[in-house]
Design a protein around this nucleic acid. Structure first.
Length: 263
DNA sequence: ATGGCATCTAACAGATGA
């Protein structure tokens, strides 16, 4: 089973890239972030022609997540409140969470808030959002030990995940508070950043700023991850960052990350 | 570089992203 995560930065603008990539890389499930489109305008028929069923949770202009699956998914749910109840409904106003079940594997697709600037209201919201994520994943894990959590986390866990960690404590995505919140939400539940099972090198990134020729100079960050529960870690065969789509004309600023599980 | 680049809505600029 192959599962990919990709922040496409608008599914409508990136439709040709995604179609071409899926044709060349027919993964079982593609987890998409930043679709930036309401559900009724998601290009379902285009993906249906490729043999993929679409499951979407979108909104106008911002955010939005989707699952594309060759095999119909079971138990698809959007948002935190589907699992945790109405007490967390305020965190579902922005569409950032969708999950489904495939062959006994619970797949969670996340678009973690960016956080804008350290100390801003959006930064505080990001930290609170990660707190809710902890409760959400803990509940899911209690229901099913086969848990895969992927997406755009907007946090670089370690200095080697940033091209230049100088001054990182002042930069959103790299502060100790964000790292601690993500660690508590995900790693402390026993999930592992599976990319690091296979690759210990620095300079391995999944996002590059559009500005300053960052991609050409490999000035990037590794902020798109797959976190696997222990039972799935044992089944992981590889985890690859595919930089090819980032080389195209008018690319997303993120590129796909693919994990393969033994069946 | 309080910038740089890209996306969206819906203006002919502003908000957001990371």
């Amino acid at each position: 089973m192959k599962i990919a995560t990709w922040n496409v930065n608008s599914i409508r603008t990136r439709l040709d890239h995604v179609v071409n990539w899926l044709t060349a890389n027919p993964v079982d499930v593609l987890c998409i972030q930043e679709t930036k489109v309401v559900d009724e305008d998601f290009p379902r028929s285009t993906f249906a022609d490729l043999g993929y069923e679409s499951y979407v949770s979108g909104q106008k202009s911002y955010n939005g997540v989707a699952l594309l699956s060759k095999t119909p998914l079971e138990s698809v749910s959007a948002g935190f409140s589907a699992v945790l109840g109405d007490s967390v409904a305020e965190f579902d106003e922005q569409k950032r969470v969708i999950a489904g079940l495939l062959d006994g594997v619970r797949i969670v697709n996340l678009y973690v808030p960016n956080g804008a600037a350290v100390g801003s209201d959006k930064y505080e919201y990001k930290l609170r959002w990660l707190g809710v994520l902890h409760d959400y994943l803990k509940t899911l894990l209690a229901e099913n030990p086969n848990l895969l959590v992927c997406g755009d986390f907007n946090v670089a866990l370690e200095d080697r995940d940033i091209y230049d960690p100088t001054g990182r404590e002042q930069e959103v995505m790299a502060t100790d508070a964000e790292r601690a919140a993500l660690t508590k939400a995900v790693l402390d539940l026993g999930l592992s950043d599976i990319f690091r099972k296979f690759n210990q090198e620095d300079g391995q990134f999944s996002w590059w700023d559009y500005r300053a020729a960052a991609f050409r100079r490999n000035l990037g960050w590794r902020i798109d991850h797959h976190y696997l529960s222990p039972s799935l870690c044992d089944r992981a065969l590889n985890c690859i960052i595919d930089k090819e789509p980032r080389k195209l004309e008018k690319p997303s600023d993120h590129t796909p990350v693919v994990v393969e599980l033994r069946d």
